[in-house]
Design a protein around this nucleic acid. Structure first.
Length: 160
DNA sequence: GCCAACGTTGGC
DNA sequence: GCCAACGTTGGC
């Protein structure tokens, strides 16, 4: 049996964060951050079932004056329960989730680099990114997959 | 603040 | 299981 049996190619993600809560500068200062607050099952399932340590992350600023990609990060932990779901004083508190059966999981992400902001409007200008999940009409998912081609185009051609 | 789009809830 | 009502996201 090959030692690489269980490895798979690096995958890529776009993860939205409101900079008021956690910006690329916060991540740069802290080094790593737990991705707290995801309360959507599809986004949770990406973290729980598909993400692996080392996966690439486009760090996206949302719900702010200039939404767009603000830098790069990397998944740096396996999934574990989001502690804020058990904290009654947290805005992310979920009274229905019990510690012996946590409903919400998260991963940690590690800072890689900050970039000049790539605005949402700029992403929409490129034919190469026409099928990006995050750009689809009506999309609200806070974590979306990014194809290798999209990753290469954004990090190689758009990022400064 | 508006509103399109989508997810969740809960009555039936 | 259906589906209307409601809540949330997030760009503009």
């Amino acid at each position: 049996m090959s030692p690489n049996q269980n490895k798979r190619a690096r995958q890529y993600w776009l993860m939205k964060s409101e900079p008021d809560e956690a910006s690329i500068d916060d991540l740069a200062r802290e080094g790593t951050l737990p991705w707290t607050g995801v309360r959507n099952y599809q986004a949770r399932n990406f973290m729980r079932d598909t993400m692996q340590i080392g996966d690439g992350v486009l760090f996206y600023h949302s719900s702010c004056p200039e939404p767009g990609i603000a830098g790069l990060a990397e998944v740096c932990s396996t999934p574990y329960p989001d502690p804020t779901q058990f904290d009654a004083r947290s805005p992310y508190y979920d009274a229905a989730s019990k510690p012996d059966a946590p409903r919400w999981l998260l991963v940690d992400v590690r800072y890689e680099r900050k970039s000049t902001l790539i605005p949402l409007a700029a992403l929409r200008e490129h034919e190469e990114l026409a099928d990006m999940v995050v750009l689809r009409r009506g999309n609200r998912l806070s974590i979306t997959p990014v194809t290798p081609a999209e990753w290469r185009f954004i990090t190689g051609k758009l990022m400064r």
